[in-house]
């Protein structure tokens, strides 16, 4: 297992992305899925960086990766911020008309579409979000 601990701050996002890209390539994830992983991790990481430690000062975010088989990468994101399950969210409306469209809610929708086996656990003061990236 490879892991990386970072400050939960937007400035840490490039390091998180670089780490996961490296792990994905080692896991033989095709480049098209590596690009999707960028979108997924930007959404999840920024949610933690911007909101998890709101009012309590900066804290850590830990990334851990395993590759159970070539072409599969399991990622865990963990933080000690306030309890928050990002998977509990209203699905966005996907109306075709601009008038009826809402601008929010697309990020976690994309995560749910492009990551598989996604799960959330609150344990010993940690939020732990686990997901799998596979060849598309």
């Amino acid at each position: 297992m490879a892991s990386l601990s970072l400050h939960a701050a937007p400035e840490s996002l490039p390091a998180a992305m670089a780490f996961l890209r490296d792990q994905a390539r080692k896991a033989e994830i095709p480049e098209s899925s590596v690009a999707r992983l960028d979108v997924v991790i930007e959404e999840l990481f920024l949610n933690i960086a911007l909101y998890a430690y709101e009012g309590s000062g900066p804290g850590p975010v830990q990334l851990a990766c395993t590759s159970p088989s070539p072409g599969t990468l399991v990622v865990e994101l963990a933080d000690q911020g306030m309890e928050f399950n990002p998977l509990i969210s209203e699905p966005p409306n996907l109306h075709d008309s601009i008038e009826e469209r809402e601008s929010g809610g697309l990020g976690i929708f994309i995560v749910k579409q492009w990551a598989s086996a996604i799960s959330y656990l609150r344990s010993d003061g940690w939020n732990r979000l686990t997901f799998t990236i596979e060849a598309d």
Partner: peptide, 19 residues
């Protein structure tokens, strides 16, 4: 080559304003 979910949000907002 890339757009984040926040970027998509701004496309919607600007699209609404222009519409």
């Amino acid at each position: 080559a890339y757009v984040s979910s926040m970027g998509l949000r701004y496309f919607v907002n600007v699209g609404k304003t222009l519409n």
